[in-house]
């Protein structure tokens, strides 16, 4: 079967610094794939390239949501990447703080709506129907994510764990075929991490959305992932199942340093 995301030899230079060096990566339908590596390895840069925030220096990024036709992401702007079905969250929370929870999710639906500016100004029946539909869909989505009690709260007033979940909800509102989560468990306590674990599995299995995630919480990564890629200094040093990665000498070296004979 064709992978839904295929990245070939992705390279990104910042001046003389090679932040990403010929990275290959594939995600298949229904998979949860993790991207791990020490701090500064280039994981977030990789996300930024895929989502159109950076343009890669070299390499190809292809998606095929239906498993047939391939579409290149090279040169697309972030809003067009989102439209083609990739949504992401950020390492540090980037909600629209001064909007309500519901509005944050509705904003995500924005790109799937048809009404233009005239419709928004003159409120014709078709727009009103669409608007109502969006409110209902957004509410249902919040129920699924478990945030329905916060609907009319401002995003900035939510507890930390809930803000993280809201980021995921907003990303899901764009109806992606794939979610890119950048350290979703960062700063969460054990209980919140457990809930997040369940949520990610639920999104993957029930909503049929594939997931690519960056995470430092190894327990979470090992329990969730179907496949793990390890990067260090911009290079891919390993890929495999959690079992394989655990015992890979290169990975251990990257994380713990080399053993020196005394």
């Amino acid at each position: 079967m064709e992978p839904i995301l295929e990245v070939k030899e992705l390279t990104k230079d910042f001046g003389g610094l090679r932040a990403l060096d010929r990275i290959d990566l594939k995600v298949h339908r229904g998979q949860i794939v993790a991207l791990i590596g020490p701090n500064g390895a280039g994981k977030t840069t990789f996300f930024n390239c895929i989502t159109g925030i950076y343009q890669p220096t070299k390499g190809e990024m292809l998606i095929s949501p239906g498993g047939k036709e391939k579409k290149s992401l090279n040169g697309l702007k972030p809003n067009h990447v989102t439209k083609s079905g990739l949504a992401r969250t950020f390492q540090n929370i980037r909600l629209f703080q001064n909007m309500t929870v519901l509005e944050n999710v509705m904003i995500g639906r924005h790109c799937r709506m048809h009404a233009g500016i005239p419709g928004a100004v003159f409120r014709n029946p078709a727009t009103m129907r669409e608007e109502k539909q969006v409110v209902e869909d957004s509410y249902r989505l919040l129920e699924k994510i478990g945030l329905e009690q916060y609907v009319n709260e401002y995003a900035k007033n939510l507890p930390y764990g809930a803000q993280r979940r809201l980021e995921i909800a907003r990303a899901m509102a764009t109806e992606p075929f794939m979610l890119l989560l950048d350290e979703p468990a960062a700063g969460m306590n054990v209980k919140e991490t457990k809930e997040l674990d369940d949520l990610i599995v639920q999104i993957c299995h029930q909503e049929k959305i594939s997931i690519l995630l960056i995470e430092h919480d190894m327990k979470l990564v090992m329990s969730l992932s179907d496949l793990i890629y390890v990067v260090d200094y911009g290079k891919k040093i390993a890929e495999g199942t959690p079992e394989e990665i655990k015992n890979n000498p290169d990975v251990i070296k990257a994380y713990l340093g080399e053993e020196v004979d005394a």
Partner: peptide
């Protein structure tokens, strides 16, 4: 949304 965070607004498809 654009006023609050322009890059994020792009990322949700605006």
């Amino acid at each position: 949304a654009t006023a609050q965070d322009r890059d994020m607004a792009m990322l949700v498809g605006i």
